[in-house]
Design a protein around this nucleic acid. Structure first.
Length: 457
DNA sequence: TCTGGGGTCCTAGGACCC
DNA sequence: TCTGGGGTCCTAGGACCC
């Protein structure tokens, strides 16, 4: 078997680059993109990085710098980023046989066996050129015999301009040189905590870690870190995953734009999260049995009374029907709700998934089914019951109508009015959803909405 | 005043069984 | 009264990723 070769293609400053693509006037201006609720910085243009703006810093701590350096500020526009990401990924799929979409702005390519056609560096440059021409996005490419080394190669390509955005680490000597320069906590899989513990053992660079005894590392840490050691030594332990593995849980949660203090508002939020979770579940073509609901106050505010709680509940039969999930989530919320707190965040978590028609009902489920239980059913013989068919038809119609972004159809429990701050369309109601997400610097959906398309004057 | 959201994997420890 | 040891399953918590 020939040794593996992986390429990691990573977009530069992805969110910031997406915003700049449609605003040539901002080309050389520092720019930051904020997290949901405009909380903290999640992406920076290279000019903003040069000014020393740190990743993850809360926006209120850098108000002065923003003004002083005339930094452009944007709320997260995931519709735009997801669409640009899809364009980049589609292009990559034309350039390589096997592609693993690893995150919104990164993909691994399997180059095993293709090297004879083109040198690795040449291939990397070609990828850069084509992605740049076709999408306007700049990428860096790292190539190496393992995913961990490819990550490191990419890191080098980003850090050292002389590489022109492509680093080939096929040569073990080059691997060693780069590893000697890289602090251990910048190795893929080594975070802050592990980094600290490794440094206490005298392991400071990636090279130190590569030279450590894998057995010894396993004893002190875990198989995960041992695998990293092997990968740094060129032994490929982490394979390319072309098809994303099926999800084991689905989480929908949000911090509130403004603190929530009433049960009614909390019901609306939990209802909305349940609806979104159910949509994701149907996309996965799965049925969930367990729902977890959690609510909490802000852990950052030590003066205010704190409360945090979560609770799990089971449907008598797995379901993907929004109504079943909402009903159970509402009952669970009642159990943990306490008056007198200013809630900052809430969410819904789904788990224990089943495929259609494989669930084995227990004795009690039979009873539940016979006793007009609200939960829909999906055991083999029930899969085609009138009840089940009705549910499927309703949900797929709902999903069809709501596809394309905005929730045109929604459940009454989600609340009927929309906060004008969110950028969503407004209804006639005078009430507002104060808990909805804050997005005060949102850019238009240039690529996915006809109303927002760029006009040339 | 203001601090993201969505995932995965591993391990330790408790409960329970034989 | 003496109170072993191994296996499995589950959960909570910790660590990581982007």
């Amino acid at each position: 078997m020939s040794p593996s070769t992986f390429a990691l293609v990573d977009c530069n400053n992805f969110y910031a680059s997406c915003e700049k693509l449609f605003r040539p006037d901002l080309k050389h201006r520092p720019l930051v993109v904020l997290s949901n609720n405009d909380g903290c910085v999640v992406a920076r243009s290279k000019e903003a990085k040069a000014l020393g703006i740190k990743m993850g810093v809360p926006i209120f701590k850098i108000r002065n710098e923003l003004r002083q350096h005339n930094i452009a500020v944007f709320s997260s526009n995931y519709t735009l980023y997801a669409d640009m990401s899809a364009r980049v990924m589609r292009t990559l799929e034309e350039l390589a046989q096997r592609v693993e979409i690893y995150s919104i702005d990164e993909a691994f390519l399997d180059l095993t066996g293709t090297q004879s056609l083109l040198s690795n560096t040449l291939f990397g440059q070609q990828v850069r050129q084509i992605i740049g021409d076709w999408t306007g996005i700049t990428v860096c490419v790292g190539i190496a015999p393992t995913k961990t080394l490819a990550k490191m190669a990419n890191h080098g390509a980003k850090k050292y301009p002389a590489t022109q955005g492509v680093v080939d680490l096929s040569d073990p000597l080059r691997q060693q040189r780069l590893m000697a320069l890289l602090p251990v906590d910048e190795v893929w899989g080594i975070g802050r905590r592990l980094g600290l513990r490794l440094q206490q053992m005298g392991i400071n660079s990636a090279l130190d870690l590569a030279n450590a005894n894998p057995k010894h590392i396993r004893q002190h840490f875990s198989v995960v870190v041992e695998r990293t050691v092997r990968e740094l030594n060129g032994e490929s332990c982490i394979e390319l995953e072309e098809a994303p593995p099926t999800k084991k849980q689905i989480v929908c949660s949000r911090s509130f734009g403004e603190r929530v203090t009433t049960l009614q508002e909390m019901r609306e939020a939990i209802c909305q999260h349940s609806v979104r979770a159910a949509e994701k579940l149907r996309k996965e073509k799965r049925y969930a049995k367990v729902i977890n609901v959690f609510i909490r106050t802000s852990p950052f505010n030590a003066q205010q009374p704190q409360y945090s709680n979560s609770i799990s509940g089971e449907l008598s039969v797995p379901s993907d029907d929004s109504r079943d999930l909402i009903n159970l989530a509402m009952r669970l919320l009642e159990c943990i709700w306490r008056d007198g707190f200013a809630y900052a965040k809430a969410g819904v978590m789904l788990s224990d998934f089943y495929e259609a028609g494989v669930y084995q009902p227990s004795l009690f489920d039979q009873e539940a089914a016979q006793s007009n239980s609200p939960e829909r059913m999906n055991s083999p013989e029930r899969e085609n019951s009138p009840e089940r068919k009705k549910s499927r038809a309703l949900m797929s119609t709902l999903d069809k109508i709501n596809r394309g972004g905005k929730s045109k159809l929604f459940f009454a429990g989600q609340g009927v009015s929309i906060n004008s701050k969110t950028g969503n369309s407004k209804t006639g109601s005078s009430k507002t959803k104060n808990w909805a997400m804050k997005r005060e610097h949102l850019s238009p959906a240039y690529t996915t909405s006809w109303n927002d398309i760029l006009r040339v004057k």
